[in-house]
Amino acid sequence: MIRLENVKRIYTRHGQTVTALQCENLCISAGEYVAVIGPSGSGKSTLLSLLGGMLSPSSGRVWLDETSIYEQSVVARSTIRRERMGFVFQTFNLIPYLTALENVQVPLGLNGVSLPDQTARATAMLQRFGLADRLNHKPSEMSVGQQQRVALARTLVNDPQIILADEPTGNLDPTSREVVLKAFDMCHEEGRTIITVTHDATAAARAKRRLVLNEGQISEELSSFAKVA
């Protein structure tokens, strides 16, 4: 379970204080599929960064099960991300000088998996996304849809419990978008927690719970799964 407790994130820019996110209490249970929607600048990326252990709140706590993640060291937070979380980015963020296979191997390498195991697991994951013939292609040699599938393979290769996605379908054509959403459906069926920030109404509709962010305030669009206190 992920829980935000009296979390406030404030930015100070040019002497002016801006509250990017304010949330008294937000619980996301294990296995939930949550879409966060809201206009640009509403704090969606701030929320994702807070949940991913990458942005310390100005006040309050972020809990992952029984662990207050910002009371952990930077290295411990890196370990949490490496072992329990997977990220999907709008622009895929593949490393341009690595092949598809090597990109998917990176999280495994960070986790200390041996090279033969890295190759076997990364190859299997890419095959699962229909990229068996693109293993040795660099991102620049692949279509946008193929790049996002490589990114999905990289996200899932370490078998994360939580998937944090930032506009995962934002740059995709309808066919590729469907591939990504099907992958999320499958992950949800496997019991993973999915939190996706999106402008895409179709993508948001696939989620079982939708949160609306407006000027840093979180509200529940459908209130049947959790409560915002």
Binding site: V74, V75, R82, E83, G86, F87, F89, I95, R154
Partner: peptide
């Protein structure tokens, strides 16, 4: 790239 590596678990 550095941000991505950190997001997927690389330590400082």
């Amino acid at each position: 790239e550095i941000g991505t590596l950190m997001a997927i678990g690389a330590t400082p």
